[in-house]
Simulated assay, not measured.
Amino acid sequence: MAQSRAARLAPVVDMAEKAEKTAAQRLGYFQGQVRLAENKLADLDGFRLEYLERWVERGREGVSGQWLLGYQGFLAQLGTAIDQQRQSLAWHQNNLDKARDGWQQAYARVEGLRKLVQRYIDEARQLEDKREQKLLDELSQRLPRESPYR
């Protein structure tokens, strides 16, 4: 009976395992998206630093007002791009957190079902062992007893 309970749970376990696999793939996807967003942000920060160093070098030589306005405009655009990339990174990190939570829940469900199935299997094995022991006991009682003093 317990064995059949374990067998009846097999499709449920399969579905839970598929859901966990899908959740793990989703988690991996969002981990990749976070890495890409972090790399883009690092590139933009590096580019801004490089541009600021150029400004210092160019400033030593002297610059025109028009060049300075263009430069400040470009730095403002670069700052906006960096802010947008930070927002993008935060969005991807939020998705990653949700995906991680979803995977953890799916994983816990699979593990819980596996433990339940194993418990059913163990119970079935114990019942079978008890039946065998009872049968052996009955058979041993039916056997003619030989006295060692004959």
Rank of each mutant, 00 (worst) to 15 (best):
L69I: 04
R26F: 00
A10C: 01
Q72M: 11
R125P: 01
L136S: 13
Q25M: 08
E57W: 11
G65Q: 15
L136P: 01
R150L: 12
Y149E: 10
E128R: 07
R54V: 08
Q126E: 07
R26D: 12
R125C: 00
E138Y: 03
V12M: 07
G59R: 14
G62C: 06
F30M: 04
Y107P: 00
S4E: 15
Q84W: 05
K40A: 10
S4P: 10
A24C: 03
I82K: 06
G28V: 06
Q25A: 12
L143A: 13
L78E: 09
Q126C: 01
Q84I: 10
H92L: 01
I121M: 08
Q77N: 06
Q31G: 03
A99M: 05
E146R: 14
Q141S: 12
Q85A: 12
Q3D: 10
L78A: 11
Q105V: 14
A10W: 04
Q3F: 05
W103S: 00
Q104C: 00
R60D: 13
R142C: 01
L49P: 00
L44R: 11
Q84E: 15
A2I: 02
K18G: 00
E38H: 03
I121P: 00
G70A: 08
R5T: 12
Q33W: 00
R109Q: 14
L89N: 09
E111R: 15
I82Y: 05
A7H: 13
E146I: 15
A24F: 07
L75N: 03
A6P: 05
H92V: 03
Y120F: 13
Q25R: 05
S4A: 11
E128Q: 10
E57Q: 15
E111H: 13
S147R: 09
P11G: 04
R119K: 15
I121W: 02
E123K: 03
R58C: 01
R8I: 06
R54C: 03
L36Y: 12
E138F: 06
M15C: 00
L116C: 03
E61Y: 08
T80M: 07
E50N: 14
N94W: 09
Q25N: 13
G79P: 01
P144D: 09
L143P: 02
Y71Q: 14
D101M: 06
L143V: 05
V110N: 01
L52N: 12
Q126M: 06
Q66V: 15
G28H: 04
R48Q: 11
P144H: 08
E53Y: 08
E132W: 07
A76G: 05
Y29A: 06
G79E: 11
A16I: 06
A81S: 11
E146N: 09
A7F: 10
Q118W: 07
N94S: 13
Q133E: 10
D43M: 13
Q93L: 01
D43G: 11
A16Y: 02
E111L: 11
A2N: 15
V12D: 07
N95H: 10
Q87N: 10
Q3W: 07
A124K: 01
E20K: 09
Q133V: 01
N95D: 13
G62K: 06
E146D: 10
L75P: 00
L136F: 08
D137I: 04
R48K: 15
V117S: 07
E57M: 14
V110K: 02
T80N: 10
Y149N: 09
T22G: 02
Q72G: 05
A19V: 08
A23F: 05
W55R: 14
